[in-house]
């Protein structure tokens, strides 16, 4: 039987990655962004988003563009992803 206890080490690993490695992640453009730059269609990206996100670009706006900001955003996102399946399941069961 797989319980939360079984998967806890992996949740911890995910939290550690998000907290302590994400501030060191490369900020170079990713594959698609780079292709868009080189081929000159990066201009067509809409910078102003259609919906405003609470943690844009994996930062907490109140903390600015700092490592702490990325750390907090990463930990939040990891926890949201972990608990969302439980939440959706409970909502659907009702």
């Amino acid at each position: 039987m797989i319980t939360i206890k079984t998967v806890l080490p992996f949740l911890l690993a995910a939290l550690l990655l998000a907290a302590f490695l994400s501030p060191f992640a490369s900020s170079l453009p990713d594959g698609l962004e780079r292709v868009a730059e080189v081929l000159g269609f990066d201009e067509s990206a809409i910078d102003k988003p259609i919906v405003t996100s609470p943690l844009p670009d994996y930062t907490v706006p109140a903390l600015g563009d700092t490592s702490l900001s990325t750390l907090a955003a990463g930990v939040t996102g990891t926890l949201v992803c972990f608990f969302l399946p439980f939440t959706l399941y409970l909502l659907r069961k009702r």
Binding site: V7, F10, L11, A13, A14, L15, L17, A18, L21, S22, A25, S26, S27, L28, D30, Y58, T70, G74, G77, T78, L79, V80, C81, F82, F83, L84, P85, F86
Partner: peptide, 14 residues
């Protein structure tokens, strides 16, 4: 939940 958390965290690491 574990898989979603791991995928999310690892996707942040460019």
């Amino acid at each position: 939940g574990m898989t979603a958390a791991l995928v999310f965290a690892a996707q942040m690491l460019n």
